[in-house]
């Protein structure tokens, strides 16, 4: 599978949007894709996660229970999902919010202080997009150009002025080296 990703965090961190941008790359490239959110009774502040599958083959199960790529944006999500990553898989950790260090030897962990980076760069609320840039760099599920194109499709017309900041955040994450 080209991308088999689970993104998890708090509601409001842009978990679903991050997944949506990734999903749109498949639209640009005419690949198969599924995007599946968790949903709960709380509208704000609860836990949120989202499964994204991209493949050239038809997508079977859209629910990502054993991710090849796991993105965690808060500590409870790290605790809950770190064990589910497939051997050989990758975990992306917002190290500004999560202190834990991954002790699994069979997966690769990336630590990106994206919340702090967003704050430092005046990109408040775009930690998720910085993270997406890093995910792209390490997984190569598409090209940077396609991801930028997908981003433009995902930002609603009313918020067109935010496109530039989003693209900047993507680049920041893409260029980030630990």
């Amino acid at each position: 599978m080209i991308l088999n990703m689970l993104i998890a965090g708090f509601g409001g961190q842009g978990v679903l949007f991050m997944g949506k941008v990734a999903a749109y790359t498949a639209m640009v490239q005419d690949r198969n894709v599924s995007w599946l959110p968790s949903y709960g009774p709380e509208m704000r502040g609860g836990t949120a996660n989202c499964s994204v599958c991209i493949d050239d083959e038809p997508i079977g199960c859209p629910l990502v229970l054993e991710p090849e790529t796991l993105v965690v944006l808060n500590a409870p999500s790290y605790d809950k999902f770190v064990g589910s990553v497939q051997p050989g898989g990758k975990i992306f950790i917002d190290s500004a919010l999560i202190d834990a260090k991954c002790d699994r030897a069979d997966i690769t962990a990336y630590y990106i202080p994206c919340t702090q980076m967003a704050k430092d760069e005046g990109l408040d609320g775009l930690a998720n997009i910085i993270m997406l840039g890093k995910v792209l760099r390490e997984t190569g599920f598409t090209t940077f150009e396609v991801l930028c194109e997908a981003m433009k499709k995902c930002v609603p017309a009313k918020k067109a002025h935010l496109v530039e900041a989003n693209l900047k955040a993507l680049k920041l994450g893409f260029d980030y080296a630990e």
Partner: peptide, 10 residues
Amino acid sequence: DGMLGQMMEP
């Protein structure tokens, strides 16, 4: 079901 309803696909 809720999965199909909430899921996005092309």
